[in-house]
């Protein structure tokens, strides 16, 4: 397997000086292509901050980040845009849909910036919305949809361009357990298709779908466990639970 992500001594400090917050504190990590990784941690532990770094949306205060062997720090804004567009499918914690566009138009966005011709774009977007079960809501604006439906539009948008890496920040945060299961099923399928899936969640049961679980506390990685393909979701969930209890006593 080739290395996809290589992060060394990554720091992100908000408001440097008096009120400074070390959202990421000396994080080092390697993720291979095709892995299914869950990053878990409590609210405020720095998960979204980490995702922004991995997704080339934000620049670390210090430390290095190699994506596909390339030092991200040396890339221009437009090169970063290109990477986000071609390599990464984002599922944001707050959906980040454009309010005056329909579901279909929102899903088409990354394809537009990828220069996909209109007909092909439409086809891919419809397929993607159908995959998340929204074929009957394609012409609705976000304000005309429930939170769960908006979440699924956001997922459809991340899937439409079939990027090799999926970055999902709390993708089931607003869904009931049935819908959550469907979404997790999709993420597992993506992993099985060979994509790299990085899942951010505070929910141990959700994290159990992944094969590798990284626990973050106060911007630091406190554990990094590879469960491999052999174990069932229930077994992994149980182990994460035990691991979490152990950390709590440290």
């Amino acid at each position: 397997m080739e290395t996809l992500i290589e992060v060394k001594n990554l720091m992100k400090i908000y408001n440097p000086g008096e009120n400074e917050v070390r959202a990421l504190n000396d994080v080092s990590l390697t993720i291979m292509r095709g892995e299914f990784v869950a990053i878990i941690g409590q609210s405020g532990s720095g998960k979204s901050t980490f995702m922004n770094m991995l997704g080339c949306l934000d620049i670390p205060t210090s430390g290095s980040y190699f994506l596909n062997g390339k030092d991200v720090a040396g890339l221009s804004d437009d090169e970063l845009s290109d990477i986000r567009n071609k390599e990464i499918g984002f599922i944001f914690q707050g959906f980040n849909l454009i309010p005056n566009l329909t579901a279909l138009e929102n899903v088409e966005l990354p394809l537009i910036y990828r220069n996909v011709p209109a007909a092909k774009r439409h086809e891919l977007s419809v397929a993607s919305l159908t995959r998340v079960g929204l074929e009957h809501r394609m012409d609705h604006k976000p304000s005309e949809m429930s939170g769960g439906q908006q979440q699924r539009v956001a997922i459809a948008r991340a899937l439409a361009a079939a990027p090799p890496v999926i970055l999902a920040d709390e993708p089931t945060g607003n869904l009931d357990s049935a819908s959550s299961k469907e979404i997790m099923q999709i993420l597992r399928e993506l992993y099985e298709e060979g994509r790299t899936v990085i899942l951010i969640t505070h929910d141990n049961k959700i994290a159990a779908s992944a094969k590798r679980v990284i626990r973050v506390i106060d911007g630091k990685i406190v554990s990094d466990t590879n469960y491999g393909d052999g174990k069932s979701i229930e077994e992994i969930a149980k182990q994460i639970e035990e691991e979490g209890d152990k950390q709590a006593y440290v």
């Binding site: 567009n85 980040n96 966005l109």
Partner: peptide, 16 residues
């Protein structure tokens, strides 16, 4: 601004 942020996050370049 937020719309612009979303567009850029999804791959819009400065020129776009």
């Amino acid at each position: 601004t937020r719309e612009i942020g979303i567009r850029k996050a999804l791959g819009a370049k400065t020129g776009s």
